[in-house]
Structure formats: structure tokens, C-alpha cells
Design a binder for these strands. Sequence first.
DNA 1: TATTGTTATACTCTATAACTATA
DNA 2: TATAGTTATAGAGTATAACAATA
Lengths: 159, 159
Amino acid sequence: MPKPAVKDTITTVSETENSDLENLIGYNLKRADVIAKSGFQQAMGDTGLSARVFTALSLMVTYPNIAQSSLSRIMGIERSGLVAIVDELEARGYLKRAPVPGDRRVQALIPTQAGQQAYDQALTRVQTQEARQFAELSAEEKQTLLGLLKRIRQMEPMT
Amino acid sequence: MPKPAVKDTITTVSETENSDLENLIGYNLKRADVIAKSGFQQAMGDTGLSARVFTALSLMVTYPNIAQSSLSRIMGIERSGLVAIVDELEARGYLKRAPVPGDRRVQALIPTQAGQQAYDQALTRVQTQEARQFAELSAEEKQTLLGLLKRIRQMEPMT
DNA sequence: TATTGTTATACTCTATAACTATA
DNA sequence: TATAGTTATAGAGTATAACAATA
């Protein structure tokens, strides 16, 4: 039995809460991700740092001297895709590619002082923004959410 | 104080669990979304239905005679982006564009019998796949997760 | 003036394949 | 043979801007 047609002009979430989609974890993850992304982009604002560049910067600052192939594996993307990200961080003066003694194939990624500072500032902005955006979730609810998302992250990708 | 460098060859999640990223809701949402998407794609397999086409099909079947502009608002994408989606559903024979008496600008989207059947089958596949993929979450945990994700979905996008 | 559907266009993110230099 | 970094290329997904038809 079809549900009543949705009005053309008003399309809130509540109007579609009977949809099959509403019970799918994948759909809800995607929609929530879109909301979170809008917050991230606002937090980065003038810096123009994209999520993936921020992620790479974070990991490089946390694990200095990391190789690009390691970074790509941690981020879950291909080596080839990381090149542009590292190029951007280098162009911003946030890292240096340095040779690794003992294996001339590898180039270690080393954060500069500017990179470290930019990261500290960006992290603060993102954390402040998330605190504001998700203020209506209690600390306990946030921890529950993080825990459940981590459980999903640890699942095997379905190839 | 920098954390110890990650080994090049082994890059499990546990090795990076000290990263700042691990406490960000946005980062965890994104990574969980990637896992869920891999499951969705496997479920769709031979049908080749993408997530957004499945979503549009679902909403059109649930709300027959919906206009494209309504659908685009519900999905949270631009009208222009929906054209290719509707084109694909029409090419598959899953819908008809029908004129609407009283407003000749609008074309109602009407699911065909093939569209209804394809959707029923696709939905079953997705539900079965999610049940399998997320089996290690209890029914209560899944409900908690869905509830928290819906809370986020209802938040204002940060423009 | 505003809205619907549409086209043209561009940008971001990601993947695959192939190359080079090393190991 | 295998790996690290790289380039070229292509495919999703999405957005903006403009247009014709209609309201």
C-alpha cells in the first residue's frame, strides 16, 4: 500500500520517516556524514583544508617520518591518491619529503613547524565546531556513538 | 610529544587508536560510511544499482507521483543532479515521467511494475546484507545507532 | 518574479593501470 | 619479483549557472 504523496514544497525528515530507507544503517550513516561534513567545512573555512588533507596532516604530525604508502594504508586510499594530498601539504609548507637512509624508494614525510602550528589550530577549530554542532548529544551519547562507529570500522570491508 | 612511528607494513586500526582523529565524530562517521558502502555495493552486485539510484527508486516507489524537485529536496541534492538518476531509472524501465494536470512544468515520477519488483528485490538484498554485515551489533545497539544518526540528521547543516 | 526540468560545466574524491627506481 | 612513489586517466557524486517553458 503506497504512502501518501509528499508535498512538493515542504520536505522535512519527519515527512519521510516511514520510508524503508529510515531503517537502513547505510542510509543513515550517509545522511549523517553529509551533516557532519558541512560542519567540518565551516570549521576549516578560510584555511581551505579539505577533510582528507586534514586527515593526512593529522596522521603525519602524529607519526612523523611516516612513508606515503603507510599513510595511504591507514587512510584506506590508494597510494596514487595520496600524491596530490602530499603535494598540497608540501605546497602549503606544512611538510618536507625527506630521503630515508637504507631504502631509497621511500620518502619520509616530516611536518614543518608551520605544519605543526597549522594542525594545532585546525584541530582546535574542528573540536570546537564538533562540540557546538553536536551539543545536543550528551557526553555519554557521543561516546556511545563513537564506540558503535568504531565497531563498524573494525568490520571487514565487503569486497 | 610525537607518538611512535607506524610500521610501514602493518597498519591496523588499533595501531592508530591514539590519533586525535579517533575522537572526532566526523572522521568516524566517514570511515564507517566507507565500510557500509562496501557492503551495499556487494549486495547490489549484478544489478549495478548505486546508492543514490536505489535511494531515488525507494522514495519514488514509496511516494508515487512525486515530482523531481521534491525528490531532490528529500535526498538533499540539487535538482540538476537528479536528472541523471531519473534518466537511469527510466532507461532501466523502472519509472515513467508523466505529465501532471494543472501544472505543465511538473512531471510526476511513476514506478512501473518492473520498478516495483526491482525495488522489492533490491530492498531485500540490502536488508539481508546489513543483517549479515552488522550481525555483531545487537538489535538494541543497532536501534541506538539509528537513533543517534537520526538525531544528527535532524541538526541544521552548517552553511 | 518564481519554479520545474534541463544542459553545460567544473570540482572533489577515488580507483586502475602503467611507469621508474629501487629492493 | 615485489614495493615506493608517480603519472595519466576515468568514473562517481555533487555543485553552480544559465536556459526555456510555465506559473
